[in-house]
Design a protein around this nucleic acid. Sequence first.
DNA 1: CTAGGGCTACAG
DNA 2: CTGTAGCCCTAG
Length: 449
Amino acid sequence: MEVIDQWVAEFILRRQHNPRVAPINLISALQLGDSSDCIKLKVSSVLRDISNSLIRGTIDEGMLDLLEILEKLLLQQHSLLMESHKSAYSWTAAECTLRFMWPMFASDGLFTEALERIWTKRIGILKESGSDLVTHDLLKWETDFNKALEEHELYQRIRETNIRYTAISFLTQLLKEQWALLGSSSLESVAQRRFLKRKAVNVEGDVVDNRGDQSAVDESTRGLESDTVDVINEQRGEEDRNGNNRENANHGEGMECPENDGIDNGNAADEEHTMGAQEQEHEPSLDKGDKTVARELKDYLLEIQRHIDPSIRRGEEPNTAINHSVDVTPQPTRVNRTATRGQDHNEATQQDNVNEKGSDSKGTWSSRIRPRLPTPVPLNVSPLKKGGLAKPHVRRPKKFWTPEEVEALREGVKEYGKSWKDIKNGNRALFSERTEVDLKDKWRNLVGG
DNA sequence: CTAGGGCTACAG
DNA sequence: CTGTAGCCCTAG
């Protein structure tokens, strides 16, 4: 596949609003091969589809298809399946079934057909293939649903459960993590690289060598980060004004485009260090094309910037938000976010009211627990502990993550999942100065959570 | 050991 | 003042 095709496809896929192109269609039209780049593209397209679905508020069996496809792709990449992926699958499957439970009695509607179609057939196939998507949780759902056929009471309880919310949470989580793994797009990398080069030239007399003058490179990339990122943000700002419901995306949690927020901001930029630094050294092949594309990209972004009220930045946001918007879409992440900050009750309960009253948040039936929903009260160590023996405790000096480390971390997560210990052991040399906790912390801000 | 909240330094 | 990155602390 031509490089330029790939860039264009990637651009379209990563772009936030593109109502015209269904990613899956785009991908099949392009006839991608199985090279790692192509797989990445395919993954992007699936993620984009999932994201689009969420924006529309659609959680249907198409979503199950997407999750299954994603699993296959990840398998080709030899990546570990994320927990969020598995959970998203089982809760989505449950949600798909739930939607056929609107009649009061199991026998009245299409519930039995749905059971047959989703659980017996679809998931039956998964079982046969030994898919990792078949989890304990999933099986538990299966038995619950089957039991519900007989036991009216169980049927009622499931019927009134807010499965959708959990499904959305997991799907959002999955998107975040996967976008984080993908890192930044080629175009962005090119822009970064170009910027680096220019910076390097400007610096002239000074050392330009990457290794020798770490700070110079850091500086330039940093400048670039804010540069590009701001522009992107503002671009989004504009789209908002044009009548879209964004808003929550500002926080990096809107499901509509995790890659632009949580990731492209902090981490993509971060990773761009990688590409920038590495590719700068060796790879003149694309140079000419690079320059053209990079220039156009930059011009485009500047153009947008010019149209935009400088006051619109990512910092200020929520006010106009929630009003319309599709379905439940925006809420879950907000809840998560606030929950993690310790005060969540309003949000959480409000959420529950959204599409049902009876929701069984205690998970009394079948011990399934809603993930991190109503985070209990925070609180806290006794003040004694703290005040008592103020041992200053020397902090380790702050050490910024190098692009190599970030890349290695990404790879590590791909390979081992969130086993920070394994990841560290997998690359002792590189991570010699990092603890497992460091890895975990870094990943946390990579995914923007 | 991991997850998640908190703290500190720093940049805008 | 706010957001971010890195590091610390603690519960489970």
